[in-house]
Design a protein around this nucleic acid. Sequence first.
DNA 1: CTGTATCCATTTGGATACTG
DNA 2: CAGTATCCAAATGGATACAG
Lengths: 131, 131
Amino acid sequence: MAVSEVSLVERARVTADGVTMCPQRGALEHITSRWGTLVLIALLDRSYRFGELRREIGRVSEKMLTQTLQTLERDGIVHRDAKPVIPPHVDYSLTPLGREAAEQVRALATWTAERMTAIEKAREEYDAAKG
Amino acid sequence: MAVSEVSLVERARVTADGVTMCPQRGALEHITSRWGTLVLIALLDRSYRFGELRREIGRVSEKMLTQTLQTLERDGIVHRDAKPVIPPHVDYSLTPLGREAAEQVRALATWTAERMTAIEKAREEYDAAKG
DNA sequence: CTGTATCCATTTGGATACTG
DNA sequence: CAGTATCCAAATGGATACAG
């Protein structure tokens, strides 16, 4: 039995085009996605407005930030609070569920930062050995 | 200052085409990549040979598995042991560094599996509210 | 058996313009 | 301000064939 069916406890679904997919692979990928990780880490501090978050993360297009936030909102990770004023004012924050995820993501990011010296050393050795 | 410059302690580098990149974003993305997560979780159990790992993970092309393994090897996460026999026999395993990473990834995957009910409920509500 | 090389489909991502 | 829509470029991923 494959890893995706054991450790991730696959509950297979057959989609329209007959391809098998498991829903938690999706959720995990949303959380660990390129912008997902940065959004979660940012929101761990406080809530952010859309443009604010965009500046905070840096170099993310409106499109990608919108998409990331919508996906995480759909998964119940991020809470969206749109105030009915003009001009629009929308606050994004973590749900309790999201906070749990974000803390783990931050732990992984912190781990990576701490091990960066070792990782770069490994890369140099690999490249030197003409990898 | 942006998230990518705080929590991930950005140490900016300017690449050939003038784009700024930080090396740990790279490392983190290798670890949390689509196939990276599955490889790490599998290797947490025991070492695997190439084809064995491919069957274990399921539905991964040779190209992607090769690429994933090489990247993780370069980062010092995965150890590659090629025995000089014919036919070739190559074992992949986790380095001590890799084991640390893999355990965190597994924790995140386990968390996702445990919260899957809540996540799917959130998705249904979101979709029902015509998201 | 363990890869590499190539080609092609799909996906992702960004720039821009526009709406409520 | 907070998005949506569109178009296009680039990266990703898979299938296949082939090499050591």
